[in-house]
Each structure stands twice: as structure tokens, then as C-alpha cells.
């Protein structure tokens, strides 16, 4: 995705290598190829590609992944700041 990379050094994704069992579940659910197998455990290949969807941490059976999950949507953040209820995003698809 040339040209479609987001901000650098901002995401909250963290991996605890000690806990990782190398099951590969995170590789399966991540839509942006953030992870890579490295021997018997996983390592973070491209941290800036993470969109904090939370799929990996929710599906990691070892609890090795943490991320402050959320939807990267400015409209939802603005609605939240204005205290509008159902601070939701448009979700056009």
C-alpha cells in the first residue's frame, strides 16, 4: 500500500514475547501484516501499520498481546468530545 501509511510511532500495540506460544493466531486475524513468525514466537514486523482494531489481543489465547483498541475515526472522536450520545462513526461500507 504505497502512499497509504499512517502516522509513525503512535500505536499502543505491545507484545510480551515471554508469553507468546507461537500459535500464529495474530497472523491470521491481523489485516495489515503487522506480525511475523520468528522461530517459535511471533515478532512485530511493522508496528506503524497497526490500526489498533484489537483483533489480535482479543484472539491471543496466551494473553501476550495488548493494545488500546478503538476505531480510528475523527468524526467519532469529535462526537465524543461534544458529548453526543452514540458517538459512532458513519461506517459507510
Amino acid at each position: 500500500m504505497a502512499g497509504l501509511t499512517y502516522l509513525k510511532d503512535v500505536v499502543t500495540l505491545a507484545l510480551d514475547e515471554q508469553r507468546c506460544t507461537g500459535c500464529g493466531m495474530c497472523l491470521e486475524v491481523c489485516p495489515h501484516e503487522v506480525f511475523q513468525m520468528d522461530g517459535r514466537t511471533v515478532r512485530i514486523r511493522d508496528r506503524d501499520a497497526c490500526m489498533e482494531c484489537g483483533a489480535c489481543s482479543l484472539n491471543c489465547p496466551a494473553g501476550a498481546l495488548t493494545v488500546k483498541a478503538g476505531v480510528g475515526c475523527a468524526a467519532a472522536v469529535i462526537n465524543g468530545m461534544l458529548g453526543r450520545k452514540g458517538a459512532s462513526c458513519c461506517c459507510a461500507e
Binding site: Y6, L7, V11
Partner: peptide
Amino acid sequence: GSSTFTSLSG
């Protein structure tokens, strides 16, 4: 919000 690669922190 419509894009497929933006994080909330970003």
C-alpha cells in the same frame, strides 16, 4: 473513519 488503516491513537 471510512479508511482501512487509521488507528485511534493516530
